[in-house]
């Protein structure tokens, strides 16, 4: 060791990455973070704080009152049921569509892309209104059903849960398809071929290769659609009416019409908690998937 110093030690490879003590670029993030901190995060925290803090000190009285009412449980049930159904329908329709889109070429791919992006860009009021027309007793769906002989007389869709799920699924479908599509188009088709040469049958290939690789997109799609479906307000207003209550419609109406802000704040916080849980849950899942991938 160290008899000569003719050449610098080879092991002393010096790092090339620039390392600055204080990165002033952080300052550029401040305006956006400050703005959202004050106008977005602060109000949400205040909402949360006020709901458990009355003039008499901390209290969960408003929640106790809310959950003491069996009607409230029905509202929470409605909300979760509709959101779950909408998510399921969009997943079942969206998953194959995303893969068809990733494989499609030329005019078919353009058609599929247009069919996704165009509805995405049209206002929710316009789309919900369209579904009102489509689902009417004399609407397209009923005309088709009667014409094809599937039913003898028009079926009632408007102001039913079926109509609501159908309309909401239609409106949220692109939010399920696009995240899965962006993952599906990255999956190397040679992977399934490789799996086939290793003796994997079609079912095995799907469940052991395609499905795990597309899971990040599926998780993102589910999180998107579910969190939008629990908080939709315009769609139920137009497609099912005032008598069917969800957490979102109660929140809106108690502020806008009923002037019962205590109730509205309570349901808003419950919605917020569910939404945050979905976001954190999906982020955790996505991280887990990334690690095993």
């Amino acid at each position: 060791m160290g008899v000569t110093a003719a050449a610098a030690p080879v092991g002393a490879a010096r790092t090339r990455k620039p390392r600055r003590p204080v990165d002033l670029l952080v300052l550029l993030a401040l305006p956006a973070v400050g703005y959202l901190g004050f106008f977005f995060a602060l109000p949400l925290v205040a909402l949360l704080a006020k709901s458990v803090w009355t003039s008499a000190g901390p209290s969960i009285e408003s929640y106790a009152r809310f959950f003491g009412d069996p009607f409230s449980w029905q509202v929470v049930g409605n909300t979760l049921k509709i959101a779950t159904l909408v998510t399921l329908v969009t997943l079942v329709l969206g998953y194959p569509t995303a893969f068809a889109m990733a494989r499609a070429r030329g005019i078919f791919q353009i058609l599929l892309l247009v069919a996704m992006i165009l509805p995405l860009s049209i206002g929710v009021v316009v789309k919900a209104f369209s579904w009102q027309i489509v689902l009417r007793r004399d609407g397209v769906v009923n005309q088709l059903l009667v014409w094809s002989g599937l039913t003898d007389e028009p079926v009632r869709f408007l102001f039913t849960e079926t109509g609501l799920v159908l309309g909401a699924a239609n409106i949220f479908l692109p939010f399920m398809v696009l995240p899965i599509y962006s993952v599906a188009k990255m999956i190397d088709p040679r992977l399934t071929e490789a799996a086939a040469t290793l003796g994997a049958g079609p079912m095995y290939r799907f469940f052991r290769v395609i499905l795990p690789l597309s899971m990040p997109g599926v998780v993102a799609g589910i999180a998107f659609v579910f969190s939008m479906a629990i908080s939709m307000y315009v769609i139920p207003t137009l497609l099912i009416g005032d008598r069917y209550q969800t957490l979102a419609t109660i929140t809106g109406r108690s502020f806008l019409f009923l002037r019962n802000e205590q109730l509205g704040a309570t349901t808003a916080v419950i919605l917020l908690v569910i939404a945050v849980a979905v976001v954190l849950g999906s982020a955790r899942l996505a991280r887990g998937l990334r690690r095993t991938a």
Binding site: M1, V3, T4, A6, A7, P9, V10, G11
Partner: peptide, 8 residues
């Protein structure tokens, strides 16, 4: 011929 390097 060179002087042995490092861990030589």
């Amino acid at each position: 011929i060179y002087p042995a390097v490092g861990h030589g």
